[in-house]
């Protein structure tokens, strides 16, 4: 497996995207993928999010930054209502994805989670083969023939920039892959069910710098087809890969804007203190 072969499927960061990051885009001019209004979140009696309101632009990478414990994970875990598997966790407010409030009780959770993929801090390969890890979600959501599934698995692994490394060992257990490969597998697994929004909660915090840069390249290519909400594991990563950044502090959204502006010329004093490393 040579490096050049593997790069084939990782598109180089598109020129458009690079330019896009250079200029400062006006978020209010972009189509909105997720519209959040007065979102409050409670862990039992303890409130963790306060009156969050934000518009996540479609086909952009939005980073969520803030000191540890400020509610970044809590915030993105509302989008796919994954928090609901725990009895005492509760969200209130409006979270509209494509204009539909997903917090409404009539939301089809399975469809919602197909549409909103999630990548976790640690890679979470299922205890099955590499192939089955990807095929699993496809089989959940589609009636596909064996051949179609195989095609989709291949496609997802290519988009996940992993195909070249695993195509000869698809039947091996996914747990035998390296941490970085496992994380790309998880991204491929999420992509396989054709989501529109991908949530990533510190996807690179458990892997080495080389694997991290591969995933950052991958995120770069994802923005062409998906909306990405990313909790980066440090501020450099936010600066490198995101178009927009939201700064969270103690469960409140303090500031939201183009990444370049947030990092160079934030409006809010707290944001500035955080960016310049005065706290956090």
């Amino acid at each position: 497996m040579t490096a050049t072969e593997e790069r084939v499927f990782v598109k180089p960061p598109s020129e458009v995207a690079k330019q896009r990051r250079g200029e400062i885009e006006d978020a209010s001019r972009l189509p909105v993928k997720v519209k959040i209004r007065s979102l409050n979140f409670y862990y039992g009696g303890q409130q963790a999010l306060f009156n969050n309101s934000i518009d996540i632009p479609a086909f952009r990478v939005t980073a969520i930054i803030g000191p540890s414990g400020c509610g970044k994970s809590t915030h993105i875990r509302v989008y796919n209502r994954i928090f609901e598997i725990y009895r005492s966790h509760r969200a209130e407010g409006i979270v509209e994805i494509d204009g539909k409030n997903v917090l409404s009780p009539v939301t089809d959770l399975l469809k919602l989670r197909k549409k909103v993929g999630m990548i976790f801090q640690r890679p979470t390969p299922f205890p099955m083969s590499i192939y089955d890890n990807i095929a699993y979600g496809i089989k959940l959501h589609y009636r596909a023939s064996r051949g179609e599934i195989a095609d989709r698995v291949e496609d997802a692994l290519k988009r996940g920039a992993l195909w070249g490394e695993v195509k000869d060992k698809l039947s091996e257990p996914a747990t035998a892959l390296s941490g970085g490969q496992q994380q790309r597998l998880c991204i491929a697994r999420a992509i396989a069910v054709e989501p529109e929004l991908i949530l990533m909660d510190e996807p690179c915090s458990a892997i080495d710098p080389v694997a991290t840069s591969k995933i950052e390249d991958l995120i770069e290519t994802l923005r062409d087809s998906y909306t990405v909400v990313l909790v980066p594991h440090n501020m450099q990563q936010a600066a490198r890969v995101s178009d927009f950044t939201a700064f969270f502090y103690k469960g409140h959204i303090v500031e939201f804007g183009p990444t370049k502006k947030i990092f160079t010329n934030p409006d809010n004093k707290q944001t500035e203190d955080y960016i310049t490393g005065r706290f956090g």
Binding site: I85, L109, R113, K114, M118, F120, T124, G137
Partner: peptide, 20 residues
């Protein structure tokens, strides 16, 4: 987190238990 990933790709509770 493994269960969350299973739910996260749209598994029902039964599918999560059975397959993961």
């Amino acid at each position: 987190v493994l269960k969350e990933s299973a739910y996260g790709v749209g598994s029902t509770m039964w599918e999560t238990v059975r397959f993961v």
